[in-house]
Design a protein around this nucleic acid. Sequence first.
DNA 1: GAAATTTCTTAATCTACATTATTGGCCCCG
DNA 2: CGGGGCCAATAATGTAGATTAAGAAATTTC
Lengths: 195, 195
Amino acid sequence: MSALILNNIAQHIRLTPEEEAHFVSLLSAKTIRRKQFLLRETDVCRHSAFVTHGCLRGYTVDANGFEHILQFAPPGWWIADMYSLLSQQPGNLNIDALEDTDVLLLAKSDQEQLYHDIPKFERFFRIITENSLVASRRRLLDNMSLSAQQRYESFCRHYPTLIHHLAQKQIAAYIGVTPEFLSKMKSEWLRKPKG
Amino acid sequence: MSALILNNIAQHIRLTPEEEAHFVSLLSAKTIRRKQFLLRETDVCRHSAFVTHGCLRGYTVDANGFEHILQFAPPGWWIADMYSLLSQQPGNLNIDALEDTDVLLLAKSDQEQLYHDIPKFERFFRIITENSLVASRRRLLDNMSLSAQQRYESFCRHYPTLIHHLAQKQIAAYIGVTPEFLSKMKSEWLRKPKG
DNA sequence: GAAATTTCTTAATCTACATTATTGGCCCCG
DNA sequence: CGGGGCCAATAATGTAGATTAAGAAATTTC
């Protein structure tokens, strides 16, 4: 049941069976049903979540009521409101489920204890965070330098599996256009089958 | 001379004098003159750089020749092409100096050795990276949800000291508008002194 | 310290994308 | 089966910000 998360960890650090057992004992399983929330923007984020089944999304709502999606979290991904988790103040991220989803939760306090008990985890989360930072910067650049069309293509290239799974509305909110414009782009794209 | 960097580190981890000395011995000082490059986009990034004097900028050039600034690095800031540093492949970040600038360089290989020799550094760079990630996501959200006007205000709020220092052109490239439009915004802003 | 280069401003025109509105399909629930 | 939501498609109109151009101001260079 925790095979996925142990496998995820084993890609970066090597744990003894005892360490694995200790780590797993800190996790608590939870199921979030479709459209239910794991975190609301008024909450303080107290856990990191690892998705084992289903799909979560992290998004904010701006002053005009528009949703902006920061992250999708399919199985094998971590998700949290890092700002809120670090500062222990209310953040501005909502996390809800696009379909019924199973997660493993690691409490912030346990995570910090883990850094002391098994310093290798310091390394693990450093690496995870470094990779997230690289991805976040690439996306920032995409947003600044690419047209909507190119951002859509970039999304398709980067998340080929997610794309069938998601409503177009969600993809539009991720790449930063209205659903209407995404629809228009796709129909124009069908007309001229490009290169 | 390395007081600034030791102070920066002391905000997150506590080092013994011997550890400090060892760390400092790994650093090499370098001066980059105005308009000279610390890193070109065709290079593999082999160092993390800590700025002690002056100001660097990290930017990419898109297909149409426009510059997009990912980061300014005034004194007390770290800068590197994280993607290239991690993958040891050519990245797409240029780093050059806006004025004559002094940096302390830490080679990737030394940084990795440091993680073994003084594990506290694993923690230090984890925390630094976490903070960068939070900042990067906030900026991504700003880009997706705010108008150019609001992004300019957000920049002024966030970098009150930098703003006098920098050419408007640079600020425009950072917030993602043309210099012409930034100029227009500012003159409109003068006309109606806002609230 | 004058020429050369770069930067800033203003203004006219243009365009990628937003807004609003309408329609039809699909799914859920009674 | 029949109605109420939600989602996608299409299209008309609107707008934030880009593009282009050209002159003024500031800085760099020699």
